[in-house]
Nucleic acid binder design. Structure first.
Lengths: 347, 347
DNA sequence: GTTAGCACTCTATGTTGCTGAGTGCTAATG
DNA sequence: CATTAGCACTCAGCAACATAGAGTGCTAAC
């Protein structure tokens, strides 16, 4: 993997120029635009070497070179220098996150829009998985004879509900009783920490309402298993501006992938390092349908706990330097916005 | 608008054949395939007439004819005969709606997937706008010092929440008191019917907590204005199989439209008749970006009250007969499923 | 080691000509 | 008088061909 400085410069030129123009890059272009102080012929020699080592390739004999996946990887790992966001972009992000929003979904939606706007690629964001947390409040409400609603509020601010069927004889007062007992017994506990003995106690106290308890506790049980996450997607049509998607077939595969939520979730969840920005190039994304795409993802956290991830999906010919900075900045801001929302603006 | 029978048959042949093949239809084709018992020459004469009257057009001199918007309109209004769903399709729908689902969002999501699967076009569904309804339950919960959550349950089963800031001095007991008073005073009322005198009463009783009341009542107020609806979209990539979208530019406009939720909402809400299936062809959809598309929409209802709409978006060359039947059946089933979910399976 | 020069390769683009589908018109037909 | 056969005409689409130009690799000179 050792590479003398000039080779690095040539590789860098190839990658940067190809990212900018989407056209194979020739030796003349590099000599002229990137002022390496040597002639095209020399560059041709270097390029021949680089090709041999697998960093660049030639689409056909009389064309310039384009970076291979290996080439992009080398660029991202060793050559690329982070591009600071412009003041304008910083401002845009800052103002976006200052806006008043009502719920987590809205924050994320807006963040996604901004992310795809700034990068001009598709954005994918996964909403926070807060973990179940502990019970804050449980409420049963009789909606009409024989139908009720169970509401559970967790201390992390998440809210869950379910409709259940109850015997016709049940009254609003019964509901209050049940809610009262459940609240008293369960408050502050996490789902995992509910003991059988405690359950027995509850069933004993509310023996008359065994049926309702079963249903209510079923909701609690589901909470443990439930994937609360949602996938937010934006700016897919940006991708169509990229020349690599002028071919309909590619657009079709792209779209069919993008409509599969489960796949997106997997792509966003199985991140490499688990911390900081991850760049995956082409095949490094394990799904063969999206070779020719790269993903830049990063987890965001709430109060130090990893909560969800944001990501950008674009062609392998992606503006890595720019996107990495944007993703970084967005995670920071998003984390902050979430914390403010959940903990209150005090801190 | 009078048209003799043979002309109608010719027009019908042109429309049907073009819908099936996406190729301009010639006189020979019609004579051969549609057995009108006359020669191509006669059909040519009829076609010339139809063109003069604006029902069909010729892309270029040496090509067959394609239906104009007017032609499609005539076809939909007078010629098309509804195509019954196949047993298989019926079965698919029935089974889909039998599945157990947890919430309204899930029903809709599944319905959208099915709709786009059956039609092979894009599906758009707007979630129920139930109207505000009347209060069933209001609950304030202290999440941590100085932060609380307001939960409001309406009698139509909808659930709303908001985080608010409260003075540090507030205790859980205070919250219970406030909840209690609000419940007692507001239960059963609609938002509109809250009188100033009643508010005064509440403020009087809870004078100490004026600040919290303000915030809680703000949520109630927002409920009146709030658009609760969500847009669900599916099967966009089906559209790419249609030859009219082999052109990237068109795909791009299509996608950029589809990413604008507000626009979709408008398209789905401003329906013509307001009842039953509406077919809008090309320019009849008022947005110039989607000329060359048609929409088939229908409202679904819950307990007789119109709740939301479902729609199919496809090229003007759409299989109207088929899609109309599918949309009809889907609204029926969706309405039923929603009612079952909200009222409980009893009825 | 670097570079100028040159022959070579191959894509992209433009030109031309042909084919075939489809038309409109005219004159013949029942 | 509506219908139809026949025919000349039009034009998109395709294939065959020629051309231009970008870029290469090699060789020989610096």
């Amino acid at each position: 993997m050792k590479m003398d400085e000039r080779k690095q410069k040539v590789l860098m030129a190839v990658v940067q120029d190809f990212i900018a123009t989407a056209e194979p890059v020739g030796s003349r272009t590099i000599a002229k635009k990137y002022r390496l102080g040597v002639s095209p012929a020399t560059i041709r020699n270097e390029m021949a070497d680089l090709e041999e080592q697998g960093y660049i390739e030639q689409p056909h004999t009389s064309a310039g070179r384009i970076p291979s996946q290996l080439g992009y990887r080398y660029y991202v790992d060793y050559l690329m220098q982070k591009k600071e966001l412009s003041a304008e972009q910083e401002e845009l992000i800052r103002r976006q996150f200052e806006k008043k929003v009502r719920d987590v979904g809205e924050v994320i939606q807006k963040a996604g829009q901004l992310l795809s706007h700034l990068t001009q690629y598709a954005s994918i964001i996964i909403s926070p998985q807060l973990g179940a947390g502990s019970f804050k409040h449980i409420q049963l409400i009789l909606m009409r004879p024989s139908q009720a609603m169970v509401i559970v509020v967790m201390d992390n601010g998440s809210l869950h509900h379910r409709y259940i069927e109850v015997p016709e004889s049940i009254t609003t007062a019964d509901m209050e009783t049940i809610s009262g007992v459940l609240n008293a017994k369960l408050q502050g506990l996490t789902i995992e920490s509910i003991k059988v003995t405690l359950l027995k106690e509850i069933y004993f106290e509310l023996a008359r309402h065994k049926h309702i308890l079963d249903l209510a506790l079923e909701l609690l049980h589901d909470l443990m298993l439930k994937k609360e996450d949602k996938i937010y997607l934006g700016g897919v049509f940006n991708m169509l501006n990229q020349p690599e998607f002028h071919n309909i077939e590619k657009v079709k595969t792209l779209l069919s992938i993008i409509e599969q939520e489960d796949l997106l979730r997997e792509l966003l969840t199985n991140q490499g390092s688990g911390e900081g920005v991850t760049v995956r190039i082409g095949d490094e994304i394990k799904h063969r349908e999206i070779r020719e795409c790269s993903m830049i993802t990063a987890p965001y956290s709430i109060c130090g706990r990893q909560a969800g991830s944001i990501g950008v999906l674009g062609p392998t010919r992606m503006e890595y330097a720019k996107v990495v900075s944007i993703v970084e900045s967005m995670t920071r801001n998003l984390s902050r916005a979430m914390e403010r929302m959940i903990l209150g603006p005090g801190k």
